[in-house]
Design a binder for these strands. Structure first.
Lengths: 154, 154
DNA sequence: GTATGTGCAAAACCTTTGCAGGTTA
DNA sequence: TAACCTGCAAAGGTTTTGCACATAC
């Protein structure tokens, strides 16, 4: 394991989270196959809200036999099990987030990066008579890195 | 015009909105072609957040020569001009909304319907150092109609 | 050993594009 | 008339599917 570069100070937290998620899969009776384990490890260690394609490209370097179908099957399973959130932050393709605690996302329209929004936003269980099970909040604009770059150029 | 069923009491508002939008297009120097006019009329009179396909299927009944390309071109133009909002409320396809004032959406996971949320939600111009230009809020769950149906069955 | 999952390739689906011909102003 | 737009068909990109083989427990 630990195929992906992680800052040493986060190593313990990373190991713990990976162990927790694997325990959760076992508890749910999910067969622990290689694709499932390496996709899980990738998502835990790469908080970049990757697309299916990005996961596939990253993993086939160390596991050349993996197929796109396995990526899609596994992600779909993880989403169904509730251990991964599916983000519709852009029209082109879905992005995935191992952090399933409710939080908003910010997408930079300049560099394309997707950020987590840490600030907790109000949650609602009901709105205008509809029963709310899930809330997705997306902000779009210019990220602080791109704002800094633009200022430096002035 | 008035090809689509509209409640009589809303007729005046409908006519006014359609006229306003046409004036806006003219002001922006947009050539008023048949596909553009009938798509605009469809969106003004059908507040169902349709997909490109739904627009196409509805319009080809009265205008059989219309092509998918025209639907996509026109919608893309309307989105660029800011007279239509593009919703990423589901992964499968984009949905479109002629109401461009900021408001959230609720999608029913039972019946699939997409509702406008009238209640104004807090707007932000900046979040965690990022400059916000656009906010999209999607709620998912069970709509009040489906809740009522479920209760009736009990 | 058996149920379940994988990998491959092809298909399905949504959206975009190139271009010849048609329409708008 | 000149610029622009449409319709058609094909292509592009993402995701799903069918099936024989492989793997986990």
């Amino acid at each position: 394991m630990n195929c992906f570069k992680i800052k040493l100070k986060n190593m313990e937290a990373f190991k713990q989270e990976l162990t927790d998620k694997i325990q959760l899969l076992k508890k749910k009776g999910v067969v622990l196959t290689t694709p499932r384990l390496i996709i899980l490890e990738f998502l835990v260690s790469n908080r970049i809200h990757p697309t299916a394609e990005e996961i596939f490209n990253a993993l086939k370097k160390k596991y050349p036999s993996i197929s796109q179908a396995s990526i899609y099957n596994t992600i779909k399973l993880f989403v169904k099990l509730g251990i991964v959130s599916e983000l519709f932050v852009e029209k082109e393709r879905a992005r995935y987030d191992i952090n399933t605690t409710p939080h908003a996302h910010f997408k930079c329209l300049k560099c394309g990066k997707v950020y987590d929004v840490k600030k907790p936003l109000p949650q609602m269980e009901e709105i205008e008579g509809h029963q709310v099970a899930l809330t997705q909040i997306y902000f779009y604009g210019t990220c602080n890195e791109c704002l800094k770059k633009a200022k430096r150029r002035e």
